[in-house]
């Protein structure tokens, strides 16, 4: 019971912090000032000859991110295989 009261107080505090932070964010759907995204939208077709701008960002402009992501996926698969290998239940 005491934990739930503490959780309610924590909810109120965190909600207040959220409210204060979101009051400085632009409203939903309003045109935000984003020069980088406008550059991508205008020049992706000319520079990289691709129609899908999201794919251009994922695989070309920010290829390092995707390299790390592929490495994370590979590592997770290796971990699952190591957990379930034959004889892993034999203490």
């Amino acid at each position: 019971m005491k934990k739930k009261v503490l959780f309610l107080i924590a909810i109120l505090v965190v909600a207040g912090v959220f409210w204060g932070a979101l009051s400085r964010v632009h409203p939903f759907g309003e045109k935000a000032r984003a020069p980088m995204d406008d550059y991508y939208l205008e020049n992706a077709q000319q520079e990289r000859s691709v129609n899908n701008v999201v794919t251009a960002i994922v695989f070309d402009y920010r290829g390092f991110d995707t390299l790390g992501e592929a490495a994370v996926l590979f590592t997770a698969v290796c971990s699952v295989l190591a957990l379930f290998r034959k004889g892993s239940e034999g203490k």
């Binding site: 990289r48 691709v50 695989f59 996926l73 698969v77 295989l81």
Partner: peptide
Amino acid sequence: SAGTISVMNMAVGLEVIGGLSL
């Protein structure tokens, strides 16, 4: 079109197929 982006799409597709199936 799209140069290496198309090649990388196929490569990452192969990787995700193998990983999720495993």
